[in-house]
Design a protein around this nucleic acid. Structure first.
Lengths: 203, 203
DNA sequence: CACTATACTGCTTATAAAAGCAGTAACCAT
DNA sequence: ATGGTTACTGCTTTTATAAGCAGTATAGTG
């Protein structure tokens, strides 16, 4: 991150204190008033600079649309919740992160690194339903029979892994879906992580 | 503090989650949109009720001027995890509490009060398996079709609730188990809470 | 020198958002 | 019945706020 100017640092500190005191971020006009500046435009420039440098995020057209990125208001921000995973992009790319869930990574038997929202019913019989959140541990290694997050043909999928010699099978837990067969000598199978837990909130 | 209505509780939870995800509170219009309500006025009423009951504070004439007063109930220790429930004893009796799980009660669509460990496979087809943790909201009211924690003959059980006149049916989600029929005129059915989420950690 | 970044003034404009007013309807308690 | 609370619709008005445009001044840099 590029270094902040003194003025930018002061403004950032003011935003953090406002957030703690008021419970919500200040408006641009409030910042200007606090610094004795008569024009909001100056502050806007500073905010845009802070956004460029990655210190904050500005939500367009939203009042008080300032989001602190680096400084976490609560010490533990929780696990990142990943939504749709686009083809050809890493899972933890920032644009996929829908939010953060405050839960301890040690809640599960194995440490979870992030949460992934399930799409579809292909793992129904394993008790994994559409819309569930999967707690995923980020690891390239998976054992036979584990439920994994795999990437095949640039598409992310959740299946049970079965390894037999040079072939890998990605087995759904639902007879309505087909087993995906991968010839490891010709195709690439990337294991993004193993599923260590399930969370369902839509009840 | 006066008890909140279901609607008020839902809105409070939504505000908490917005705050965690966005970094600032929602506008009244955003809350209305999230709940599919066409008039912002209804939400204003709810917010004023929440302010009257001391759950939030409203900053007049300020956009997103919602301040949470009651910080999340157990910020440090998390939700209590209840193990086996003995006959004739309240669920949250201290001797049943196995431990505390560090997760925010606002993680689920409705606020969870405690976690309960599932015994048996009677709700298998609802994606609830043996050993899962259920997030339970403590309420004596349940709607038709909700999965509830009920107490019948001094024994706690998790089933889907179906109400038909003076009879209540506790339906398992597994053809291997029998439906429990309760005549409300002769027997007492105590609803301990409704299931608002599922957590599975043994994967 | 031209060129860029920082830091500001002083307006205007568009819109986001709170606040107000007048209703309807259901439910509950007295 | 009567009043209170909850829960909503559908408008209008007012103000809070972001965003845009046109400038000024200072300092550093190749």
């Amino acid at each position: 991150m590029k270094p902040l100017t003194d003025r930018q640092q002061d403004i950032l500190t003011f935003i953090e204190r406002s957030l703690l005191q008021d419970g919500f971020p200040p408006t641009i006009a409030e910042i200007a008033a606090a610094f004795g500046v008569r024009s909001t435009n100056s502050i806007r420039g500073h905010l845009q600079a802070l956004a460029r440098k990655g210190a904050i995020e500005l939500v367009p057209a939203a009042s008080r649309g300032i989001r602190l990125l680096k400084a976490t208001p609560s010490p533990e921000q929780g696990l990142p919740l990943v939504g749709r995973v686009a083809a050809g992009q890493p899972i933890l790319a920032e644009e996929h992160i829908e939010g953060y869930c405050r839960l301890g990574p040690e809640l599960f038997d194995h440490r979870a690194d992030y949460l992934l929202r399930v799409q579809g019913m292909s793992m129904r019989d394993a008790g994994i339903l559409d819309g569930d959140l999967l707690a995923v541990q980020r690891t390239p290694e998976a054992r036979n029979g584990q439920i994994v997050v795999a990437r095949i043909h640039d598409e992310a999928t959740v299946k049970r892994l079965r390894l037999e010699g040079v072939k890998a099978f990605l087995e759904p837990a639902n007879p309505d879906f087909a087993i995906i067969e991968v010839d490891l000598q010709r195709e690439q199978l990337v294991i993004e992580g193993v599923v260590v837990g399930v969370i369902r909130s839509g009840l």
